[in-house]
Amino acid sequence: MTEARLGLPNLGFGVGLRTTHYPHILKHKPDVDWFEIISENYMDSGGRPRQVLEQIVEQYKVVMHGVSLSIGSTDPLNFEYLGKLKTLAEWTNAAWISDHVCWTGVNGLNGHDLLPLPYNEETLRHVVSRIKTAQDFLERPLVLENPSTYVTFTDSTMSEWDFVTRMAEESDCGLLLDVNNVYVSCFNHDLDPEDFIRSLPHERIVQFHLAGHTDCGTHIIDTHDNFVVDKVWELYQLAHKLTGGVSTLLEWDAQIPDFDVVHGEVLKARDLIQDGSVTLDTQSRADADSVASDDPAQGPRRSATVPQPAVFVAAEVE
């Protein structure tokens, strides 16, 4: 039998570390349970991001979250990348390393997106063998997240949850359940998010993600630019009940508000599982529930709704 959370600790309620919050965090040392860092923003840094991270890891527990592992790609695994990931994990003493059940490019290119896989036997064999190789190399389990997706393929022969369950069991990896992504993908693919969550191997879930999204009417885009919607909070409660509680993290990546607002949002999760109710700010709810216009058929090269990930570190100049 698998130990709950693969034996990994429940770190409590954390926040995704973002550059805009560096000064606040360094100055006020907020009482946050833990931080999640974007691995790619630190693995090559010789400047401010690395220096800030050195101070963060002295005071907080961190988890590494990547967006470029591309575990589902048919290109070869990038061992230079894996090596840097391992080195970063060693010096940050990361509690675990996560990435996504996706691919980000082929033919040596990176589209910097979390692209969906067809869920079938071929993909399963491919992904399981790569997870095993990466885990052997990293000498620790990988924790893989369900991405928000916008298409499904006729090549799929099984549901995403069956795929993820078999993938986790056959490769012995952990899962990062992004509750908002379940909601987004299920809306986009006409599926029931509760079925999704109920069908997973709950003892393998190591971490939850929560985030806001943008409802475009015909589809939902995972923008991480808002408060968490009520439906997602309901799913979170269900996931909490089924797993017995795991590390919970809030992601906010665009139109990022003050640190206390972001931290306050993840603390709603704590209140929710403690008292069974959570008070949402009316204004923020109105924003979170509003429908944005993003007509993909119009093909705008650029719209306000950029799906995650789009985390870039800008330079500070005198």
Partner: peptide, 21 residues
Amino acid sequence: RLGSRERLAVYGNAYFARLVE
């Protein structure tokens, strides 16, 4: 709610939008 082409276009738009941003 959405045709295959529009669904795929979400990724096409996102690709350029993200990198341009």
